[in-house]
Simulated assay, not measured.
Amino acid sequence: MKLRKIAHSRTGDKGDISVISVIVYDEKNYKKIKEEVTVEKVKKQFVNIVKGKITRYEIESLGALNFVMENALGGGVTRSLAIDPHGKSLSSLLLEIELSD
């Protein structure tokens, strides 16, 4: 099952840092994403995009995980040659992570 089936996502950026939050639709699925959406799995998903450190924060009260990805936007909005220099579409890539059924 894809992560998008049980969660949605929001993104933000600051310079060359992309911040992606994953928020469950139903809080009963929060434990599942905490266990399965690890930094290692996210690094693998973004191997060709994120060149720096990835830090995960847990936001229990919202049923959310927040990933801060450094060196992820090709130098930042004013420097990037990417079609999406803000990295807003990166949330779609995160939601493609495969979870166990």
Rank of each mutant, 00 (worst) to 15 (best):
D16H: 01
F46V: 02
K34R: 14
I49K: 13
V19R: 12
L90H: 00
S18K: 07
D16P: 05
E70A: 14
L73P: 03
E60M: 05
I54D: 00
V47L: 10
D84P: 06
I49L: 15
L65N: 02
S18C: 13
K34G: 11
L94Y: 04
Q45T: 02
L81I: 06
H86N: 08
S91H: 03
L73R: 04
E35T: 10
M1S: 02
L95K: 03
D26S: 14
K34S: 12
L90A: 01
V50C: 11
K44Q: 15
Q45R: 11
M69K: 00
V37W: 06
K41D: 12
A82C: 07
K51E: 12
G52S: 01
L90T: 00
S61H: 13
S92K: 04
D16G: 02
Y57T: 08
L81T: 08
K34Y: 08
K41P: 14
V39M: 13
P85Q: 06
D16A: 02
S61T: 08
N71L: 14
S80R: 06
S18V: 02
R56E: 09
G12W: 01
E35Q: 15
K41R: 15
S92Y: 10
E40R: 05
P85D: 04
Y30K: 10
L95H: 07
S80Q: 04
I20Y: 05
V37R: 01
Q45Y: 00
P85S: 05
I23Q: 07
K32F: 09
K43A: 01
K53T: 06
I83E: 11
F67K: 06
L94R: 03
I6F: 01
K2Y: 09
T38Y: 04
S91K: 10
R79E: 12
K28T: 13
E96W: 03
I83K: 11
I23T: 14
F67Y: 15
E96A: 14
V24T: 11
E35S: 13
L3Q: 08
K44G: 10
K14R: 08
L65M: 05
G75W: 05
K43L: 02
E27K: 07
V19K: 15
E35Y: 06
L99C: 06
E40W: 01
E36T: 01
A7K: 14
S61R: 12
N71T: 07
E98N: 06
I83T: 12
L3S: 04
I6T: 00
K43S: 05
I17Y: 02
E70S: 15
E58I: 14
S89L: 10
D26E: 14
D26V: 11
V47K: 15
F46P: 06
S9N: 08
M1F: 03
E40M: 01
V68C: 14
K88C: 00
Y25K: 10
I6M: 02
K5Q: 11
G74H: 07
E27L: 12
V42Y: 10
K5F: 08
M69C: 01
I54T: 00
S9F: 01
K34P: 07
K14T: 00
G12C: 02
R10G: 05
G75L: 06
V42H: 12
E96G: 09
